[in-house]
């Protein structure tokens, strides 16, 4: 058991490190055996976490987006199958093509630009709620002095590698992005690890020798560490912040702080409610059965769950116990995963 646990953590470390130079195994290949999991994956939120500037559906749908930020003005226009990002100050202007669009677009999209061999995170982002551009989170307080500074925040290679590491598959070797072998979006191998040997072994009828670790067996704590490599672990936020409402979007941190969190109870694990192979958010009634696994008269009361029964309702639990918050400037309501009795007027709990 101890050895298996070590192997699991080694696997997590391996996936963290990423770095296989082989081609990505297409989802269709995995679908040969794992049909149920593969069927909806290409349309899932995870699979659409990144697109090139040319392929971004948001940018395709918007021939022209504009934004004024003091002495600088911004424009993203669609020209000949790609989008050009321009920042102007008076008569001066700087135009670069949008290289990459990060995010599905359900909340918004931020763009990665290149200029003279350097990467820049766009100073303005697209937000779905306003169907327009606004400051990228964190950029509002900055005061650029030059057009280049106004273009966006210069982003070093390690940070760029982190961005691609969480928004694409098979992209990062150490701190270098391997565009040759990269596939935009989170596909099977992003979580399950390199599958080429596994596929080859299956073809020869020797699946046992190349068995991939079963992520479904991870404990809640292990799963949080696994998903937290991108969605941020409790340890990351607790030691590095941010504290306050800005951390509402880091779900593993929030849920770990919930009273009902139990490190070893899979009923509170990320995948207890979310299927990463399909669409993310479901109607609130969908989650009632998940809550009822602990909070119902017949529930197994093992683990952490003293599991009180709600005196108010047995329906739409999340609408009361997982309130939604807007991060200032994000134009999006985020569900707070710190499950609790949220009393009116009480402060946001860290």
């Amino acid at each position: 058991m101890k050895r298996a646990r070590r192997a699991l953590f080694a696997f997590i470390a391996l996936v963290f490190a990423s770095g296989a130079a082989a081609e990505v195994t297409p989802v269709a290949v995995c679908a040969g055996c794992h049909r149920e999991q593969s069927q909806g994956q290409p349309d899932s939120n995870m699979a659409k976490a990144l697109s090139s500037g040319a392929d971004s559906s948001i940018l395709k749908q918007h021939a022209r987006l504009t934004f004024n930020a003091g002495r600088f003005s911004y424009e993203i226009v669609r020209v000949g199958g790609r989008s050009l990002y321009t920042v102007r100050e008076g008569e001066e202007k700087l135009t670069v093509p949008v290289a990459w669009a990060f995010g599905l677009g359900s909340a918004g999209q931020t763009f990665l630009l290149t200029l003279n061999g350097k990467w820049y995170e766009s100073r303005v982002s697209y937000y779905k709620a306003i169907d327009d551009l606004d400051y990228t989170l964190g950029a509002r307080g900055l005061a650029p002095h030059t057009l280049t500074e106004a273009l966006g925040r210069e982003t070093g290679n390690p940070e760029v590698a982190q961005c691609f590491g969480c928004h694409s598959t098979n992209s990062v070797q150490g701190i270098v992005v391997d565009f040759e072998h990269m596939t935009p979006g989170i596909l099977c191998e992003s979580c399950h690890g390199p599958a080429a040997k596994h596929v080859a072994a299956i073809k020869t009828g020797d699946a046992k020798t190349a068995e991939l670790p079963r992520l479904g067996k991870l404990s809640a704590e292990e799963m949080f560490e696994f998903c937290g490599r991108c969605h941020r672990t409790w340890a990351t936020i607790a030691s590095q912040g941010p504290l306050g409402v800005e951390n509402v979007r880091f779900q593993p941190y929030r849920l770990t702080n919930a009273k009902c969190y139990d490190a070893y109870d899979q009923r509170i694990s990320c995948v207890a409610c979310h299927d990463p192979h399909s669409h993310g958010q479901q109607p609130s009634a969908f989650y009632d059965s998940k809550c009822a696994r602990c909070h119902s008269a017949g529930a197994n009361a093992s683990g952490n769950a003293k599991a009180q029964l709600c005196p108010v309702s047995e329906k739409d639990c999340v609408s009361c116990h997982m309130p939604r918050y807007e991060i200032p400037g994000a134009h999006h309501m985020f569900t707070d995963h710190q499950i609790r009795i949220a009393r009116a007027g009480s402060p946001y709990p860290n």
Binding site: L243, G244, C320, R324, Y325, A344, P347, Y348, N350
Partner: peptide, 25 residues
């Protein structure tokens, strides 16, 4: 410890972190 650290920050209020609950209907 984090709560204590936050309380020491300039301008800290008794309920410093995000203000009142904003529950969405």
């Amino acid at each position: 410890l984090n709560a204590e650290e936050q309380a020491k920050q300039p301008g800290a209020q008794p309920a410093p972190n995000g203000g009142p609950e904003k529950k969405i209907p």
